[in-house]
Design a protein around this nucleic acid. Structure first.
Lengths: 197, 197
DNA sequence: GGTAAATTATACCGAAAGGTATAATTTTGC
DNA sequence: GCAAAATTATACCTTTCGGTATAATTTACC
């Protein structure tokens, strides 16, 4: 790995949490120089402009989340266990995520939907790939006879995401993880009562 | 009403949607002068600083939402009809709300949770007052024998808010209201299957 | 190990940010 | 309708913003 590449990664690693916490528009060049100890010259030597750093930071943040989800899903064998593992992951991971500013998809989504088209597109991709992963597990469960065949995998995937994002929003703003846990309970109930046959 | 009060209201009315759309930090003094046709001197003659306008704008935005909810709830007699009317309201109101930047509580919540303590407090108040309204309707239904007595009114109120906010977030970022409607369907299902006895 | 190339630091721009002092203008109450 | 008070406009201030040209330094390769 070339020096520039190492510096590039260093910048992203050091600023990703700041972008997620302060926002992609509100994070300034001076925030970046302060966090990295580097100068503007160094940052602009590795990125064309501020937006490029913001994009890279979002990609870093959303990739980290995506990998967490993958790990939770892949840790189990059956479709039911995969979904339950996915839900369980949030019961332990929420605190670290909150400390880093909360769910990057939720944050970037609310910030970007009206103002940052370049980010909006990335968030849309994150969401559809997340929904796809979940619905693939559901379809897998249907094909293996674990789950009801008539359930719309895609709809259930999106309802799970809806509950989780709503729960994160409420949990974060109220400083009370109970609201997230209540949402996660609902996802479990959904799986047990409507998806499993 | 004194002239200053009229100007104050005028400023809030003209800028509230901008704050909700661009964000409470990102909306600048020049955004405000452009939207109102007034000068900085006039704005600072009516507000101590930029944050005061932001607070007033949030209060305006959240009050408008709160009054919509009140109207939906008060339009009906029975507790069930009130809840259904509340859900139905979102099926028609979502478009106007999206055009004005989306749910002010969701937007301000995500922006303020880590950065704007003065706004965070206001959002917490909005949410708890919203949850209180819904749970009062549920308790009312329980006392009148419409609803199951064992249901936790508070928990159901928060789950409804979770679903709606998650649905708005997904609907807005994907440009597809289907996700909001799916969330609203779940709220209806919740009422029919778990709350009504 | 020396040199060309790549990388980082310094010093600077113009523009826009929030904010203020003061002058000009409206309101308001008599 | 006039004077005092309240309100709005103008002009300016400092700071910070993103960005750039160039100089200093480090890296990488023969």
């Amino acid at each position: 790995m070339t020096k520039a590449n190492r510096t590039r990664n260093f910048i992203i690693e050091k600023t990703a949490a700041i972008f997620n916490t302060k926002g992609y528009s509100a994070t300034s060049l001076s925030d970046m120089t302060a966090a990295t100890g580097l100068t503007k010259g160094s940052i602009y030597g590795n990125f064309a402009n501020r937006d490029e750093v913001a994009i890279a930071a979002y990609e870093y943040n959303s990739k980290a989340l995506s990998e967490q989800i993958d790990r939770a899903l892949n840790a189990k064998e059956t479709a039911k266990d995969k979904l339950m593992s996915f839900v369980a992951h949030y019961r332990t991971a929420w605190k670290d995520e909150f400390d880093r500013g909360g769910c990057p998809i939720l944050n970037a989504s609310v910030e970007a939907d009206d103002n940052l088209p370049f980010l909006k597109e990335k968030v849309q991709q994150s969401i559809s790939s997340w929904a796809l992963k979940l619905s693939q597990v559901i379809v897998e469960g249907q094909e293996h006879g674990e789950f009801k065949k008539e359930a719309s995998a895609r709809d259930y995937a999106y309802v799970m995401i809806t509950l989780i994002e709503g729960g994160i929003m409420l949990g974060k703003i109220t400083n009370d993880e109970k609201h997230l846990f209540l949402a996660l309970d609902r996802v479990v109930q959904l799986i047990n009562n409507e998806i499993i046959r």
